[in-house]
Design a protein around this nucleic acid. Structure first.
Lengths: 232, 232
DNA sequence: AGGGTTATTATGTGCAGACATAATATCCCA
DNA sequence: TGGGATATTATGTCTGCACATAATAACCCT
């Protein structure tokens, strides 16, 4: 648990302790790296490593010449791990299955083409799939894939492997958006997810990009009772 | 945009490019640091910095002796910034207000005491507040604070400053849980949030700890239309 | 006093070398 | 052949040094 004395982790922990104990209250400047290094009896690089780690976590604000100060509003960040749905289900100890409900190349709604910044007549592959956990509906997936960016998807065995998983393995992306909201189940959605119409569902919207090329747009509707957990 | 040649960021970018270009496909081992350092013409420490950064991002798996390999399932992580509600509202360009609806020291429900791992008769301060954005309801906050851990809260001016903000400034925490779900508005909640009963609402549950001491439990119910955004 | 140039300073980062550590591979002996 | 001691190897990290960079402070000249 406790780091070896003199290690950058030990320095980090001690700095954190002082911040926490209000020795260095929020907004205050802390000694410079050289001084800290001397007082801790380590090299400046070691102090630098510790402080950079804390700065990356948002605990410290560092600016050249201005020095290092304790963040005034430690903007807490929660990191959400986004696993492949199959892994998520299996990690919960339940058998996973996926049923492809629809697959066509109809024109996409404006919402989708605009989110992907594509012309409204762009050729997109439309997929609808139901993810099952232990036989019960887990999530309803509505997806549009930019066929121009990922032509191989047109011949992928999407009845065997979920588009979710196929894309992760075959269409790397460099950036994306991710948003969460709540939605009342429509009658169609309720039928697919075996719940009451109007039930509150977690809705996840995601778009992914490979550089400037849009890859895919997904809307994931989770069955009632679903909860996304993350650590602070 | 492009990093200076020879910098660790440049190494990182090049490694990422090779992974991305499938020169080093998922699951494969990449050359060791010494070899990479030589081929890039930089010091091993520089390569190390680059690879550590990628490992922290989940792109690489590194193990002593075993070497470095491209992560098989690059578990994507989205980082969610959790601002103080006031800041969130003001950042959207709307005036913020907070109304304290209730403040008492009634015994807490089992759900709360269990989540905080406290005896069911522990003295907890109960608060209910409505956060407003531009006059319209933004979120309904239901909070229980461990008075034993943060005695100063009992004399805090919670009609002036939201408990949310007061705690961030006065009760640092070391760890916590954070989870998101969807809930149908009850009639009471609908009345407070000025929406229809049954409307789908984003529900955020949060508990925070200072080491082993529980600090607070919060349930935040966002008004309809709320959407949490994050970058991948 | 004002405004632009220059010095100062704290962080950012690179290098070479060294040792620590963990995980694996190998060897040796019963 | 099995199993435990030992060697090997790749990453982890510390040190001391150097220079780069950005931001601020100081200065100077008009």
């Amino acid at each position: 648990m406790t780091a070896r004395p003199g290690s950058w982790q030990a320095i980090e922990a001690e700095v954190l302790r002082r911040i926490h104990a209000r020795d260095w209250p929020p907004g205050s400047a802390i000694p410079n790296e050289a001084d800290l290094a001397q007082s801790f009896g380590v090299a400046r690089a070691t102090v630098n490593r510790a402080l950079q780690s804390l700065a990356e976590a948002g605990i410290l604000d560092r600016r050249r010449k201005a020095g290092t100060r304790v963040a005034l509003h430690p903007v807490r960040r929660a990191t959400l791990r986004i696993p492949i749905l199959r892994h998520e289900v299996e990690a919960a100890g339940q058998p996973y299955a996926c049923r492809l409900l629809a697959r066509d190349e109809a024109p996409a709604p404006e919402v989708v083409t605009q989110a992907l910044r594509l012309p409204s007549d762009a050729p997109l592959l439309h997929l609808r799939a139901l993810h099952l956990a232990g036989g019960a509906p887990h999530a309803l997936e509505e997806r549009w894939v930019n066929a121009a960016a990922v032509p191989a998807i047109l011949s992928a065995p999407l009845d065997t492997i979920s588009a979710n998983e196929w894309l992760v393995a075959n269409a790397p992306f460099t950036s994306g958006d991710f948003s969460i909201a709540a939605a009342n189940a429509t009658t169609d959605e309720a039928a697919a997810l075996a719940c009451q119409p109007g039930a509150a569902l977690v809705e996840v919207l995601r778009t992914t990009w490979d550089g400037a090329r849009p890859i895919t747009w997904v809307r994931l509707l989770h069955a009632p009772g679903y909860r996304m957990r993350m650590a602070l």
